[in-house]
Write a protein that binds this DNA or RNA. Structure first.
Lengths: 248, 248
DNA sequence: GCCAAACTTTGACCCAGATCAAGACGGCCC
DNA sequence: GGGCCGTCTTGATCTGGGTCAAAGTTTGGC
């Protein structure tokens, strides 16, 4: 999730990203044919829970459109988002019976799913599926570890800038820059969701976004529509290495 | 790394854990034979760097004995440990040319390595190697995400208790409980390394360890030798679900 | 068009953990 | 044994971000 490698998928190649991501690393059509039989789509409304942590999970799949989050919750209610699923990201763990996290749709969401048992059987028969999944999982691991640095060592302002950078990068591959060269995107998360991702409170998120706006690092139209006039400036604020760390 | 699945490897089965972890999920000896040819051992002294982030990495391998850490560092020197490698843990990413993190030996360290290119070739030919690596990587991803909750939402005291729990669990599979039922182990990390793992300062680590000692949650002999009289008490202090979260 | 609910901003105050500073406790080399 | 260096502890103080509170804004239902 959330890295350059994900961005490299050609978006005009098919309507179903999972073909490229998980199944069809080399677009071999005979394997696709077999998988078509076990494939189905699921739709969720904004706010709906896809699956609860600990529940039996009999499918794997990937996001077609919309956004979902992975969160962990302590008994006293403290929550930490541990993943953000954007279109083409994969959910589910071959070999695991139960979900490890709550998966929640934060916008209307369409997922392309495969029943788990046949998918695993398919994986056993076609080696490069496992290899592609391994590659994807390593990407996710890199992203998770990158995020550990954000959570453990960055200031609130740096955390916000880091999150905005990631969303900007991710969106930049789909949306165009506007005529002035600024990067423009809509925040897909509420302030509270951002706080849960960043290990902050929603008040601090709000304050730091206001501060970045006052300092000209970003500008806002409404609450969610963000313009980044100078991407390098934002990266500097995030405290990232100039090469973008894991994204290099 | 750092989870129950790792613990399930029978320790008396061979002197080289990688056979079980990465290569020989089902102990098929013909595959082992071929890998023997590309296998070699490397030794490091405490404090030595195994590889720097960004450097070319032409091997994969696993820890035979000793402890290594994975760390990320910002330009201003802030560092975050993103992984702790104990015996049998795997290092390296098939398909990646360069190391993503600094890998440092914190104790004297022996690693069992495979040259990367032939290992990858082997992986292509024997599908269950990729499947085993996928399983291991998913374990690491779970551990990383579990740690995101620790970094983002837990208090200093809970962080220390979480780290001690993980080390205790991990060691408990190797070391015996003593006659009274207490769990006993040596801390493999300095206070500073613990701080880097937990996103704290070394002073806070020291203070919280003292506090846990005063409150009878642990007792210390010297600086490093820890006794946990009541494991459940420690887990409660860590704020973990009673089922142990990801370890369940 | 109005109301209610959800989301967001801003202010005032507080506290957990950082920072700064000073010793204490080993080991290890001479 | 003595001195030195790395590690650890403890104290005093400071501060970034949390908490509590209130009010502003947007959205959707009727």
């Amino acid at each position: 999730m959330l890295n350059e490698r994900s961005l490299s998928i050609p978006v005009d190649c098919t309507e179903c990203p999972i073909r490229h991501r998980a199944v069809c690393a080399r677009c071999e059509s005979d394997e696709l044919e077999r998988l078509e039989e076990i494939k189905y789509y699921r739709k969720f409304e904004a706010g709906q829970t896809v699956i609860w942590s600990g529940d039996r999970m009999d499918f794997v799949g990937s996001v077609v459109s919309g956004i979902a989050t992975l969160t962990q919750t302590m008994e006293d209610g403290r929550t930490q988002m541990v993943g953000l699923l954007l279109p083409s990201d994969f959910v589910g763990r071959p070999g695991r019976a139960n979900a490890a996290y709550d998966v929640v749709a934060t916008t209307d969401l369409v997922m392309c799913c495969f029943r788990k048992a046949p998918f695993e059987e398919q994986m056993r028969q076609t080696p490069h599926i496992a290899q592609r999944l391994l590659e994807m999982t390593l990407d996710e691991l890199d992203a998770a570890r990158e995020w550990m640095l954000v959570l453990g060592r960055k200031t609130a302002r740096e955390k916000i800038a880091s999150l905005l950078s990631i969303i900007a990068r991710r969106d930049a591959s789909i949306n165009m820059r506007n005529v002035t060269g600024s990067i423009v995107f809509d925040l897909p998360l509420t302030r509270e969701a951002m706080a849960d991702y960043l290990g902050l409170t929603l008040e601090t998120v709000s304050r730091q976004i206001s501060a970045l706006r006052k300092d000209g690092v970003i500008s806002l139209e409404g609450k969610r529509h963000v313009t980044v006039p100078d991407m390098q400036r934002l990266l500097d604020e995030a405290g990232d290495d100039s090469d973008g760390g894991v994204f290099a």
